[in-house]
């Protein structure tokens, strides 16, 4: 629609885009509410959820393992480089563990998951819509929200925290290998500093809470974008892009908010 030129036109377009954005957010919220009656699928059709955990979780494992190992090794090198100036290299284990468990594990896993599994989820649901598979299911009296969307949503939600835990664990192990074999640190010091400095309630639970929230948000965005996609090839490609962009931004934004609350207390 022509919205005129000049400043008035710009203001109008800005207003229209803002309204569209708010309307989309509202639709996404309603979509989440419409999903909730499908929650029993977790108990009645558990195999569907397991199948999707394999697709989105297990198949993302490789990229998470490799990235986790590299991030751990990099942290060890960089951390050592800085700590050694203050003669504090014995705290390297603690530094690596806290960085991974509190921040990098949940955030990087979420970003990798959005790119690897979230986009695939959107594309799959969008294509099922474009090829009338969802309409076909509806006409067979099968609710696609329960049969297709809910298992994927739950699987994504469950997978992210598990992958984040694996990411952090692999990262710490890789950092240990680099610290002991390459940097010549003492292995015992590496572990004991970590053991005394990492708190289960603050640090580990903080990371778990973050990754659970990220899992929820990414899966929600991914299934909503797929279900809401225009049923054409451009529509599906746009939806896939939007999944990756929106969920990455949402993850980083939410991470900031949650970190602020966790560090300062509620």
């Amino acid at each position: 629609m022509d919205q005129g030129r000049g400043i008035v036109g710009h203001v109008r377009r800005l207003g229209r885009q803002t309204l569209d954005g708010v309307a989309r957010l509202g639709r996404a919220m309603l979509f989440l509410l419409r999903l909730t009656p499908g929650l029993p699928v977790l108990f009645t059709r558990f195999s569907l959820v397991i199948q999707q955990i394999y697709v989105s979780g297990v198949l993302t494992l490789i990229i998470v393992l490799v990235s986790g190992a590299f991030v751990g090794m990099i942290l060890a090198l960089q951390g050592y480089n800085t700590l050694v100036r203050y003669d504090a290299q014995s705290s390297l284990g603690l530094l690596v563990a806290l960085s991974l468990v509190r921040e990098l594990g949940p955030v990087l896993t979420a970003l990798l998951f959005a790119g690897r599994a979230g986009s695939a989820m959107t594309a799959e649901i969008g294509l099922m819509k474009a090829t009338e598979q969802l309409a076909g299911m509806e006409m067979m009296a099968v609710d696609p929200l329960k049969r297709v969307v809910m298992p994927r949503f739950l699987a994504g939600w469950v997978s992210v925290p598990l992958l984040a835990a694996i990411f952090s664990a692999v990262g710490i192990l890789a950092a240990y290998v680099v610290a002991v074999s390459d940097l010549g640190l003492d292995g015992g010091v590496f572990w004991s500093q970590m053991q005394s400095g990492v708190s289960v309630t603050n640090d580990i639970m903080g990371g778990v809470v973050k990754s659970v929230v990220f899992g929820l948000v990414i899966s929600w965005i991914a299934v909503f974008e797929g279900y809401d996609a225009r049923p054409t090839s451009e529509g599906v490609s746009l939806a896939t892009t939007r999944t990756v962009v929106s969920s990455s931004l949402a993850v980083l934004g939410l991470d900031f908010i949650m970190t602020a609350f966790m560090l300062r207390g509620l």
């Binding site: 090829t131 009338e132 598979q133 309409a135 076909g136 299911m137 509806e138 006409m139 067979m140 009296a141 609710d143």
Partner: peptide, 19 residues
């Protein structure tokens, strides 16, 4: 509606088979 649809069949132009 779902109970009624169980008694209706529909053939889509695109066949709408689950790929």
């Amino acid at each position: 509606l779902f109970a009624l649809r169980r008694r209706m069949g529909m053939l889509f132009q695109s066949s709408a088979l689950l790929t």
